[in-house]
């Protein structure tokens, strides 16, 4: 049964009328044309589909659209402020972190989420969160440097 679901998406109110059991990922991509969030496995194993729900990073492929009713969702498209990229995006670009880039949106949102949840998180704590993310191009070395850079900047911002 289609239901009316209202939530905040990248800072703006959105309403969709659909089957509440559909995944958040599918609705973002197919109904709302936000394709920055990727499908990699559909079963919570790769985190290509990471979004923030109330600031917490979640696998949107195993989160139903019904579950985000009245909640606040942020996707990769919602991180930049106009032309100004989010510092984590800047750090990933500066380090030439990705190869094919298919995992990148999930990685960036994952790092943003980890730092949002705990701005004082240590690097090992953030890396433990990132363990859920797969980069099949295995660009992990550069990603790690990028995360380090993002955290150094974050540290400055919070100092």
């Amino acid at each position: 049964m289609d239901t009316k679901i209202s939530f905040t998406l990248n800072g703006k109110p959105r309403t969709v009328t659909t089957d509440p059991d559909r995944s958040l990922l599918e609705v973002l991509r197919e109904d709302l044309q936000l394709t920055g969030t990727k499908f990699g496995c559909g079963e919570g194993q790769c985190r290509a589909c990471t979004v923030l729900v109330n600031g917490v990073s979640k696998a949107s492929c195993i989160t139903s659209i019904g579950d985000v009713d009245k909640q606040e969702v942020v996707t990769i498209e919602g991180l930049a402020n106009g032309d100004k990229l989010h510092p984590v995006q800047e750090a990933f670009l500066a380090e030439d972190a990705f190869q094919c880039g298919y995992c990148t949106a999930g990685m960036i949102v994952g790092v943003v989420g980890a730092l949002k949840q705990n701005p004082a998180a240590s690097e090992p704590e953030v890396m433990a969160q990132m363990q859920k993310h797969i980069c099949r191009c295995c660009s992990y070395t550069k990603y790690k440097t990028a995360i380090h850079r993002a955290m150094a900047q974050n540290g400055k911002a919070h100092a």
Binding site: T35, G36, A105
Partner: peptide, 15 residues
Amino acid sequence: NARDIATGAHKFPSD
């Protein structure tokens, strides 16, 4: 096209 990857703007085949 790195910037488009980092912002999610790039359209992969599945997009």
